[in-house]
């Protein structure tokens, strides 16, 4: 995958954004020296990039996240270092945005600078097995709400349709039509489909642009 300087990962609540952000960061680190994951999720109280702090450190990837993540400070705060994403032009970063339009609101804070530099891509992560985005039209509705909230437009779609540990190869195959329909109706390219690495072998000859994911460890 060819990266822009800033890669924004956004989508519906629970579509798998954090996991994809962490995996893309590992991939990006193989191409660039100065890499960061920036967690600007102001919505989710649990299961954050912070859970992967150690693993990111080992890989030499900088983690930019609220000092209050995984604590009892229950306020929607952004890390002050968030400005290095836009100001430090030598830094390649993956932005993990909170779910839905409420989460995307925080992105609006740095959206003007991102837009001005215009060296970014914004990926919409979809999961057909999530309750409020089960058909293309409802997924597009959520997509437009996010764009409206943050002031940026998506440039690509990532199909991460899964049922957690119960995902079968057929579940993934069944989602291709759905992801294709979203791409067609919005005229935004479907960049790739992501699966847990255990499903990569049975599917790699059946799905083009398939990308295996390492799962973030749940504490």
């Amino acid at each position: 995958m060819k990266f822009k300087r800033i890669t924004i990962i956004s989508g519906h609540y629970g579509s798998g954004k954090t996991n994809i952000a962490l995996n893309l960061a590992s991939l990006l680190k193989k191409q660039q020296d100065n890499v960061a994951v920036a967690d600007i999720d102001i919505v989710n109280p649990y299961f954050r990039t912070k859970d992967s702090e150690e693993s990111l450190k080992e890989q030499g990837i900088r983690l930019i996240c609220s000092p209050y993540a995984n604590t009892n400070v229950d306020i929607p705060s952004l890390p002050q270092e968030i400005y290095s994403v836009t100001d430090d032009k030598s830094l390649y970063s993956i932005l993990d945005v909170g779910g839905d339009e409420r989460g995307a609101l925080a992105l609006g804070r740095i959206a003007p600078a991102i837009k001005e530099e215009n060296n970014y891509q914004m990926l919409y992560v979809v999961n057909m097995y999530r309750p409020l985005t089960q058909d293309a039209d409802s997924a597009i509705e959520v997509m437009r709400e996010i764009e409206y909230a943050c002031g940026l437009e998506f440039t690509g779609i990532v199909n991460n349709s899964n049922l957690g540990l119960e995902t079968t190869p057929d579940d993934v195959l069944d989602s291709l039509l759905y992801a294709g329909e979203i791409a067609k109706k919005t005229d935004i390219p479907l960049l790739f489909t992501t699966v847990d690495k255990s499903l990569f072998a049975p599917l790699k000859d059946k799905i083009s642009n398939l990308y295996p994911l390492e799962m973030q460890k749940k504490l």
Partner: peptide, 16 residues
């Protein structure tokens, strides 16, 4: 296609 959906516990309460 699976007849299941992937849900957060809180969402499952609401939909149920």
């Amino acid at each position: 296609m699976s007849d299941k959906v992937l849900m957060k516990g809180n969402e499952a309460i609401a939909e149920a």
